[in-house]
């Protein structure tokens, strides 16, 4: 977590004023200030009148037993509102990338390195009824061949990437539109989810049915108008509470031009060669 905070500050370009193992003091950038300091009025004022902004200085204390000498600062722990803001800020500003893998150095005389385009989508799946669990499902779609690879992002996360196309490289053509690729990715997610144990959903439906029956018994066969409306409301509440749903949203996505292939088959069968 400490590492996360330091990397976040570096990635956002915050100016570190003091750096110790137990705390950091950082002058925020305007973007960080907007994400972390909850002062939209200040920023609209500054921007409207073209003033020189003065971003805040934050002191984030990792070890509350060893705070800064001046005693100022706030503990940043898991579950703190501040860390939640950092998480949100990172997710807001790390949504979409287009990156090129840096090829292993090769003499310039060799033929140019061919870069294969992949669409990476990091899905978050929520299984929800009155309870909820989530998981991440990172999927990659080869835009040249249409091949779908699950567990894509973790496989490439350690590779070197650059935002500018490296010299001596060529980009392979796309054979899929973006929409078609997304269709494939979603189909892969749907298939994965369908293959999973769904007892949680069956249990939720059983709870729903059980409670609907109790409610109907409570309100009786033919409740008077007013009670009937109440019953309807109660039934709606039960539906909202128990109906099992699988909701899928996207954490982030990117175009990755890879110079080395992603393993196409995996001993654990995690990679599903599609089509």
């Amino acid at each position: 977590m400490t590492a996360f905070v330091r990397r976040y500050i570096a990635a956002m370009g915050g100016e570190i004023l003091e750096d110790t193992p137990s705390y950091v003091r950082v002058r925020l950038t305007p973007d960080m200030d907007k994400d972390l300091m909850n002062r939209p009025f200040y920023w609209s004022y500054v921007e409207q009148f073209g003033l020189e902004p003065v971003p805040a200085v934050l002191t984030l204390v990792f070890d509350p037993d060893r705070p800064p000498p001046d005693g100022r600062g706030e503990p940043i722990t898991f579950g703190s509102m501040r860390l939640a803001q950092l998480f949100r800020s990172a997710q807001k500003r790390g949504r979409f990338v287009r990156l090129y893998e840096v090829p292993a150095t090769s003499p310039a005389s060799e033929p140019a390195v061919r870069l294969v385009p992949w669409l990476a989508i990091n899905y978050r799946i929520s299984f929800r009824c009155d309870r909820k669990k989530e998981r991440l499902l990172p999927v990659g779609v080869n835009l040249e061949t249409g091949q779908v690879a699950q567990g894509f992002y973790p496989r490439i996360a350690a590779r070197p990437f650059t935002p500018v196309m490296p010299p001596h490289t060529v980009v392979a053509p796309w054979s899929l539109t973006l929409e078609a690729a997304v269709d494939r990715a979603e189909a892969a997610v749907t298939a994965t989810v369908a293959a999973e144990d769904n007892h949680w959903a069956r249990d939720a439906l059983a709870r729903l049915a059980e409670e609907q029956a109790l409610l109907r018994a409570y309100y009786g066969e033919n409740p008077p108008e007013e009670r009937r409306n109440e019953l309807e409301q109660r039934l709606d509440e039960l539906q909202a509470l128990f109906t099992p749903r699988i909701e899928v949203d996207v954490v982030n996505a990117g175009l990755f031009y890879l110079s080395t292939p992603v393993a196409t088959a995996d001993e654990r069968g995690e990679l599903a060669a599609d089509t």
Binding site: F4, A90, G94, R95, R124, L136, P138, V251, N252, G254
Partner: peptide, 8 residues
Amino acid sequence: FQLAYEAA
């Protein structure tokens, strides 16, 4: 991008 994934 990496931080966002880790945050998620």
